[in-house]
Amino acid sequence: MRITRTHVIAAFVAVAASAGIAAPAIAADTAVGKYVALGDSYASGLGAGGYIDDDCKRSSNAYAQLWANDHAPSAFEFVACSGAQTADVVANQVGVITEDTELVTIAIGGNDAGFADVMTDCNLGSDDACVTRNQEAQAFAQAELPGRLDGVYAEIRNRAPSARVIVVGYPRIYTLDGDCSVGLSETKRTAINQSADVLADVISARTAAAGFEFLDGRTAFAGHEICAPGDDWWLNSVTFPISESYHPNAAGQSGYHAALVGMTG
């Protein structure tokens, strides 16, 4: 196991406590090394407002930025970009990873499988058309996406052999039989959630194969999907600008952040 500054500090605090010695306060920036945040719009924070980058829609409310604010890493590279696919991560994002990187987070794969088009087709088309489009996306996710993810994950590991890598998954979009009286039919909502499950299954399997950790967005967002009782939704429904539709709002990014903190401390 690679010994990091975090391990050393934790050991010191444990020894001090057992000896009845009050451990001195240690600043967060002495305990956390370089952090790199990769991915697509779910990682950049599209839909959460507070944008600090117009092209990629990186948000000050994104989970990566919130984590960096809390932990003050020695270096922080936030390069996630709205619209990114796996090939874009390899071509434009992984270059910021260096051997001293201690933590990498990444959310990617939804755009490869065409889930933006899925949501458009489901909003504009019939139930049958929506179900068919979801089945096409699911088939792609199962057949083509694994190889693409493997390539991205291998690139990350090659560049930072000792980094901790957390793959952030997508949530289900809807609470079924929820409180929405208008909008997409229950048939469409069911098909969309099935696609979210397929995507999560594929990503989690490839994450495990790479030896990385998986943050399940379905668990993190449970009870806060669109149509959840109480209107405490962590996802935008159809909104303006339209590109922010079906993306986590600021509360959703905060929910991702809480889940990430739960994994990392």
Rank of each mutant, 00 (worst) to 15 (best):
L103V: 02
V152W: 08
R58M: 09
S41K: 03
S181Y: 06
S237Q: 06
G262H: 09
Y35F: 13
T30N: 00
R172I: 09
D127G: 11
G230H: 02
S59H: 03
K57W: 03
G114F: 09
R148N: 13
F140E: 12
L103P: 00
S60Q: 06
P241G: 09
T132W: 01
A141T: 13
A154W: 12
V94N: 07
E225S: 10
A84H: 00
A222Q: 10
H71N: 02
L260N: 06
A31Y: 00
R189V: 04
S185W: 05
F115Q: 12
D55C: 06
V94M: 08
S254G: 06
Y63D: 01
G217K: 04
E155S: 07
R189M: 15
A37P: 00
P171K: 11
T105R: 08
V182N: 09
V152N: 08
F115M: 07
Y42Q: 11
W233D: 07
G109E: 07
A200N: 12
A22H: 07
A27W: 01
A191N: 03
P24E: 10
R2P: 12
C180G: 09
C56Y: 10
E99R: 10
F140V: 15
V15T: 10
A14P: 15
A228D: 06
A116Q: 08
G252S: 06
E99T: 09
G252F: 01
C130L: 11
A28S: 08
T219N: 08
Q138A: 14
